[in-house]
Amino acid sequence: MANQEIQVVDKKELSPESAEITRNGVYFTPAVDIFENSNELTVVVDMPGINSEDVEVDLRENILTIIGDTKAEEFQGQELLTEYRTGGYYRTFRVNNLIDHAKIAASMSDGVLTLKLPKSEKAVPRKIPVACD
């Protein structure tokens, strides 16, 4: 496992049918890990190139929405090689477990967003602030 080589995964652009987003620009589907233990659900999202202040996490009516916005950087020069495209990230999930909305924590480090959603009995809609490491 330790010597396994990392695989390249091409970025998937959002298809127009699945994107309910009404913003300009290119949005990609980020790679996500979701795992849970008896106390909480953890969501890990790869969003390289996104500042923590440009991340929006929203959970209402059991729909978790993750949006990462990017400001297009103008570069004066010549593009010699383009292997990846840059843009924002957008993904939604339906969260089945009852989540304690007051205790949701989000943190961003090295282009990876980590969301901790503790399990609970009540479900109240609430915006989640994103903290920067």
């Binding site: 790679a31 979701i34 233990n37 790869d46």
Partner: peptide
């Protein structure tokens, strides 16, 4: 006691 729902992020060297 951890179970994965999704595992899309790859790791390795």
């Amino acid at each position: 006691n951890v179970s994965y729902h999704r595992r899309e992020r790859s790791h390795g060297s």
